[in-house]
Structure formats: C-alpha cells, structure tokens
Write a protein that binds this DNA or RNA. Structure first.
Length: 449
RNA sequence: GCCCCCAUCGUCUAGUGGCCCAGGAUGUCAGGUUCUCAGCCUGAAGACAGGGGUUCAAAUCCCCUUGGGGGUACCA
C-alpha cells in the first residue's frame, strides 16, 4: 500500500478536547498522507505536566476515530520518551550548542544557544519567510522538571520518527526558526514545512469557549454526521478547484494537494455547517439514518422500547428532508414521544382561541373517529370532505388541527403526522384541545346563550 | 514595543496579468410549489480594504497605509 516515503503527523497536546481547528489540522495531514500513500502518525505531546490529562487524550482519540481519521502509527507519548530528550539536550551541551542555566527561582534548565543570522523557511503554502535569528533569545529546551519544551521535543521526535512534511497551524510559523536552528545544530535532515491558516470564531477572533461549540465531541453530541463535518472542515482553507461543495472522502483524498491550500484564516460558520449536514442527511438512506436516530434518541432519554423499527423508519422518512441534525429532529418530533403535549402559547392564541374553532375541532373529532384505516389517504379524504361541507378553506382547518395535535404551528404534513401518531392519540389531543384550549369560543358561546 | 503572517460578496471560496464592469456556495430578500414550516425551483441584492507605482493591460506584480491574526513563556 505504501508507495512513497512521505510521512506526516498530527501532534496535539492533551490539554483539552480536540477542537475544530485541531481537527482540521489532523484532517489535512491525513488527507495529505492518504493522497500520497504515505504514513500518518499520531503523537500526543503531553509535556506540560500541569495541564495534560488522560481524559483529554481519550477525547482526542475518540474524536479522531469518529471523524474517520485513522492513523498508521502511534499514538506515541512524549512523556514516555523523556530519556531521549535528555540525551539529545546533553549532546547539545557537549557540543557547546546549549548550556545549563539557572533562573532567579533557582531552577536549573538547559538553554539552546541561538546563532545570529538570517533564517529562511521555505514554506509549502507561504513561500519563503525570513527571520532575523538575532532577535530570538536563547530558549529553554529542557525544563527543570526534566521535561522537554515544545520546540525541542517536536524537533527530536519529528527527526527520529522521520517526518517528511510538517503540516500545522500557521500560529507555529514563529516557532519554525527555532526549530530550524535545532535541526541544523543536530545535523538532522530538514523536513518540508506547510503552515495552514487558522480557523477563527464567527466573530473573527481566535476560537475559544465563548464561541459556543468548538470541540468535535460537541458536534457529535448535537447530532452532526462526521462526514458532513469533515467536508465542511476540508473546505475551510482548501478547495478542490471547482465549484463542488459536497465532496466524498474518496474524492477529497484524490484531489487534496497542499498547493490548493490557501493562506487566509477562515471564520467558522455554523449556518453553513447546518446546511451541509442537512445535505448529508438527505443523501443518507433512511435505513442507515434510522439506526443512528435510534441511538441518538435513546441517549437523549427517549423511551423507544414500545416503538417498532418500522414506525421509527416512517418517522425518519417523514422528516428526512426537514431536519439538519439529530438534535434538530428530536426537537421537532418530541411530541410523538411524550404523554403531555407542550403547547406553544402564541400558536394557541393565534389558532385555537378563535370563535368557532372548538366546534370545528369537534367536527374533526367525530369525522375521523369513524375512520377504520387511520392512514394519510383516509384522513385526507375525510377532512377535505369536511372542509367542503362546512365551507371553509383547508388551511383554516389545518392550522388549528396542527396546534391541537402537535402543540405548534409548524410541523410536517398534518395527515402523515396524524397517521404516525395513531388514532387514539390524535383523538385525545383533539378532545383535550377543544375542552381546555379553545376557551374563547366557549366563553363567547355561553354569553350568547 | 519588536518580529512574523494575512487581506475578493456578511461568511466559505474560484480567480495565479488580458477569458472578470469578478464565478460558485451559504446566508438574506422576492416569486413559485403548498395544510404551516422546512425542502425544492426561479430571480435579485451583495466583494477585489485604501493610496501610490510597474505595464498597452492588474483582483492578480512592487511599495506605503490601514485592518485582522500569530509570536515574543522552564504553554503547546
């Protein structure tokens, strides 16, 4: 399978969940590896003893798996390679390229001696970037606790693990001259660098918790499809070169090149993600969706023990083009699963508290209680006939019925909804509404009498 | 402060000197379909940050300004 010697890595630090910026970096590395039939390595950079946690590591692995970003090597943990870094740091000291340094607090660390001069980065997406090395201070490579610093561990590992292309966020551009200096000090083979643009929050500032959902797991829990998220993320900073928006993973792999990665940071846009997720849902077969819905609903506490697979499948079919996420579907269909309907007050006021509505709903009740086969067709025949008989437009009947039965003024087709709800529940809701919600008409009627 | 990166519709982007009085998507608005909403279909509005150059010709090249982002840690 491996026909190239290309090797890349994704190296997150386990100080929090995998956020979408990190996921996008992982994705580009993965895509690059798959496109070139190279190796994708996962390395956990847990050198910050204070902030690294095992839960974070697990969350990162789970997120990667969920997204389908499988790795060929690793995960490697830097915390398990301490002696390697120590050896390398001491080697640099022996070479006179690093030195022991004690700060005011008495902590003894090893610092790297920066050489003056110009450092050039030949970046695959930015082109040549030049730094003045004299502006960079001698930096710590081995901390007093024996742990390496990021810039040092990164270089030692990338060299030892034979990483050929370093694809990472462009917030690392300013680290690169330090790392290049380290590569040169060791005489390591220089890898290629590709700094990809960052993903910003919807207000254009750096992504943080105040932007709402920023972690991959949150999107999973809100009922997004992993492929939709991947597709959306891929288009943030990369494009296939044509007008295509919906791209399969296979096609992404075929078309992915660093050449088509742009330099400008991108603002995350939930609205477009929602649209894209909706597209993926529409393109996913009902059977598959039903399986996912079942899992999602159960996790959300919906009791499906008395619900048949066929019924759930019908529900998904009815809502197939109407929901954007599983959470969205749950919000829209909750009334199917509860004994007491939550009535939207505005909808009740607008459609039920009007003169004659109570009477009308009673007519509906008696008309459909006669129906033997309680399905869409019979319901429609019966109710269309009713409106003709009473002499009102169908929409004048549909809205009050909708509110009475679903609690809201918005729903899927009313006949299909009634059919799925079943005769008993439909009649009950109608009855309940006429008795408790259509007060105004009742009041008017009683005063008239 | 200093260093570095970036700059096309609100947002994601196409565009690598003439094919662009700038194309697509999303969102918005209008119309159509319709039992509501969504969906779908049709249409509209909407951008080359500003200023200088270079060139017969610039969104595309150069410079300056402005704006945004990143770095400047014994965080990664």
């Amino acid at each position: 399978m491996l026909s190239s010697n290309i090797k890349v890595r994704f190296a997150p630090s386990p100080t929090g969940y995998l956020h979408i910026g990190g996921a996008r970096t992982a994705l580009f590395n993965w895509l690059f590896a798959r496109h070139n039939k190279g190796i994708f390595l996962l390395r956990i950079e847990d050198t910050d003893q204070q902030r690294s946690t095992e839960e974070a590591t697990q969350a990162i692995l789970d997120s990667m798996k969920w997204l389908g970003l499988d790795w060929d090597e690793g995960p490697n943990f830097q915390s398990q390679r301490l002696s390697i870094y120590k050896q390398h740091a001491e080697k640099l000291v022996a070479l006179g390229k690093a030195f022991y340094d004690t700060d005011e607090e008495g902590r003894k660390a090893i610092r790297f001696k920066m050489q003056d001069g110009a450092t050039e980065i030949n970046d695959l997406v930015h082109g040549t970037i030049t730094f003045d090395a004299s502006l960079i201070e001698d930096f710590v490579i081995l901390k007093a606790d024996g742990f390496p610093t990021y810039n040092f561990a990164c270089v030692v590992d990338d060299a030892e693990m034979e990483i050929t292309h370093i694809i990472r966020g462009d917030d690392h551009i300013s680290n690169t001259p330090k790392q290049i200096a380290l590569y040169n000090a060791f005489g390591f083979k220089m890898p290629e660098f590709a700094h990809i643009p960052m993903i910003l929050g919807e207000d254009g500032s750096r992504l943080s918790k105040r932007h709402g959902a920023t972690s991959v797991t949150e999107y999973r829990d809100k009922g997004y499809l992993p492929h939709a998220l991947v597709n959306f993320l891929a288009l943030l900073g990369w494009s296939p070169g044509n007008d295509q928006e919906i791209i399969s993973i296979q096609e992404m792999i075929e078309k992915f090149t660093l050449k088509r990665v742009n330099k400008t940071s991108a603002q995350f846009n939930n609205t477009k993600l929602d649209w894209m997720n909706g597209q993926y849902i529409k393109n996913t077969p009902v059977e598959h969706l039903t399986t996912e819905v079942k899992v999602f609903f159960e996790k959300a506490g919906i009791d499906l023990t008395k619900i048949s697979a066929a019924w759930l499948s019908s529900l998904v079919t009815l809502y197939h083009e109407r929901f954007k996420t599983f959470q969205d579907l749950l919000n829209q269909t909750r009334f199917f699963f509860t004994d007491t309907i939550e009535y939207d007050q505005a909808a009740v006021d607008k459609f039920l508290k009007k003169e004659g509505i109570g009477e009308l709903l009673k007519e509906v009740h008696s008309a459909i209680s006669l129906i033997e086969n309680f399905d869409k067709k019979h319901l429609e025949d019966s109710l269309r006939a009713l409106t003709t008989r009473v002499g009102v437009g169908f929409s004048k009947l549909a809205q009050p019925m909708r509110v009475a039965i679903t609690g809201k003024s918005i729903s899927a087709g009313i006949f299909e909804t009634m059919e799925l709800l079943g005769k008993e529940r439909t009649l009950y809701s109608l009855d309940y509404s006429t008795k408790h919600l259509c007060e105004k008409s009742e009041t008017i009627k009683s005063t008239a009498l």
